[in-house]
Design a protein around this nucleic acid. Sequence first.
DNA 1: GATGAATGAGAATTCATTCAT
DNA 2: TATGAATGAATTCTCATTCAT
Lengths: 213, 213, 213, 213
Amino acid sequence: MRARNSSTEQDAGPPRRTFTESARRAQIVDAAIAVIADLGYAKTSFAKIAKQAGLSSTGMISYHFAGKDDLMRAVVAEVMRVADEHLRPRIEAQPNASARLRTYIESNIALLIDFPKHLAALVEVLANLRDEGPDQFGYAASMDSIMSFQAERMRDAQRTGEFREFDVTVMVHAIRGAIDEVVGRARTDPDLDLVANGRELADLFDRATRNTT
Amino acid sequence: MRARNSSTEQDAGPPRRTFTESARRAQIVDAAIAVIADLGYAKTSFAKIAKQAGLSSTGMISYHFAGKDDLMRAVVAEVMRVADEHLRPRIEAQPNASARLRTYIESNIALLIDFPKHLAALVEVLANLRDEGPDQFGYAASMDSIMSFQAERMRDAQRTGEFREFDVTVMVHAIRGAIDEVVGRARTDPDLDLVANGRELADLFDRATRNTT
Amino acid sequence: MRARNSSTEQDAGPPRRTFTESARRAQIVDAAIAVIADLGYAKTSFAKIAKQAGLSSTGMISYHFAGKDDLMRAVVAEVMRVADEHLRPRIEAQPNASARLRTYIESNIALLIDFPKHLAALVEVLANLRDEGPDQFGYAASMDSIMSFQAERMRDAQRTGEFREFDVTVMVHAIRGAIDEVVGRARTDPDLDLVANGRELADLFDRATRNTT
Amino acid sequence: MRARNSSTEQDAGPPRRTFTESARRAQIVDAAIAVIADLGYAKTSFAKIAKQAGLSSTGMISYHFAGKDDLMRAVVAEVMRVADEHLRPRIEAQPNASARLRTYIESNIALLIDFPKHLAALVEVLANLRDEGPDQFGYAASMDSIMSFQAERMRDAQRTGEFREFDVTVMVHAIRGAIDEVVGRARTDPDLDLVANGRELADLFDRATRNTT
DNA sequence: GATGAATGAGAATTCATTCAT
DNA sequence: TATGAATGAATTCTCATTCAT
């Protein structure tokens, strides 16, 4: 039998899942995050994930997820959930766009410290999982919507004069790229001073966005 | 027979290669770049590369390269060679650090237009090929040395007062990350206005580095 | 998934195997014995074993065994088991060392008649499977322990005066070598009179060990 | 083009070989002996032999030998040549059958000391290269003829009463098996006291053959 | 005579997935 | 729900051999 419900529900309503099923799914997703962060996307397999999760067979994974892509979407969703939970309150507590920008960058780096594998796994998956066909229901989509939202916020700040004029899309993606680069580097270099990197990065983009007129 | 010589020669001198061998190697490397850029590192296989190169068997690749890693190192080296050839003269023609920085960014984007697959392949390989063991002769190593060089140049500009004080390492990596993000996005979105992106990115980092005192 | 458990368990307790798994493993081991005996170690491959076992793919073998070495260890263990079962009661029924020696030799030859492929496979594997690294759990190790045991028994017989003085290690290995030679010859020459060979060999080593003072 | 002449000439007369050709063949055979002794027959390949011989391609080997079997026959022939050269004068210098037997055994062991790889390679090849088809022109054939010769000599000694009555074929093969076992063990255990082993083995078979009436 | 390049088959192993129980 | 067993394609790599130069 095929997995009863995929991770991205394009059909009606959220899937009903029993407690055990949800627990199993979460267990598998966590294992997947760990394996992807440790070995990289290319060397990740159901077998390694099952081993990491303490499962006896890969059949279990296929049972709970519609396929590799489905599992990866679930990984993305989980990391997004954790990231949102971690970032949103911090960011929304800030008084202005400039502070929010700084908080966004520094909180991303803080997330990297608190959940070292989550962002690494996210970057790996998004880099490797190009949306093929029209079934792009969760990969980059959720990431894209976040970035669109940030871009809109930036545009607001430009209107109020807090930020200078610049292409917000380029800016948002540049910030994302710079953060992801730190994520990748943190993997290689465990001695990297993340806090300092976050602060410097925040300074950098503060300068780049601030209105100096 | 095994591949006679690997791509990274730590021993004495460059390997002697006949004309035919060099041609075949180049042919395979080119095919690898195309396949990696199109399908991503994870879905790249010798079979696909052989097909792309018009080779009859994957054995041919094993014959010319010591293994998958060796081929990937050759890919990195080739892209670096093309990039260097493309970037260096443009950059060195600039009168000051600020202009060099702008040229570096815009020329990278121009490279993305002229050789659409090269940078994509490079980013894919560097992201997926974690250096295992001490045999990291060429992967990230050559990239690192380039970035160290750029950092040193930036420090010079700080001493002359052309650039403000900032952590040059962070800056260099942020620039790299921002460019790589564009590379990744260009893969997905063929309508992306690369020239505009390059100009905006150059503006961004000009603001971030400039001394405004 | 990888094979769940290797054939030599150095860790705690025997591996739990389901009935089906044990049956498949036995089936594969039997097929391996047949192929090795027929074609020799060098020409034995998973493909040939799978065919002999009526399996659809070589993947099945990799599924049940951790690798070629693991399968070979299982082959050695199985032959040892059969041999022990066959030899031990006969030998232990004998009243003295001299009779035990004769029985050991003749029963080995009898084993060659009853299970023509088992000893042939054993000799092939032990000759070709050089223990690489410290993981020699079962190859020559179990064989060595058997021979040490025999040597100790011989030493006892020397103390009682039943056997003359000689280097028991050399004797034990000479006997083994002589038997293995018959095993090898039996493969080539189906007309070989094994019973006569066994009797003559027993006479030979009886003379060589007997105390004639 | 196929190799001009195979190692076993069933056709008329010895092949004409130029000096260089003979030198190359000898070089390859020597390399083959070393590789077989070191890695075992199963892991020996043209590639490894070419590397050992300092040759740039395996084509060279195929050029000089009609195939793998042909090379192996040449290996056997070479080892036999060296062995004969080493053993014959020593054995023929002995006054009687008993002394010749002892010398045969001890000289074999001495050969193992002087040319550690030769006998090891021989045993490997003979154990793995079962004569398939009617083309058994050199493998076991030459070995067989030697053993037949030895058997005949033993029969003579039985007629003169120097040796007791026994099955000479069995005896000859038992001796061979015992020696080969030492050869195999010497590979594993470099500390093995070969001289002592040879002496003990000679004693053993002296007892087994001597007429004690 | 000799070489390097190529071939195509075959090696062991891992893969995601399916299915009967 | 869950599991272990099986599948068959695909992976990288090595093999002995051939052939044009």
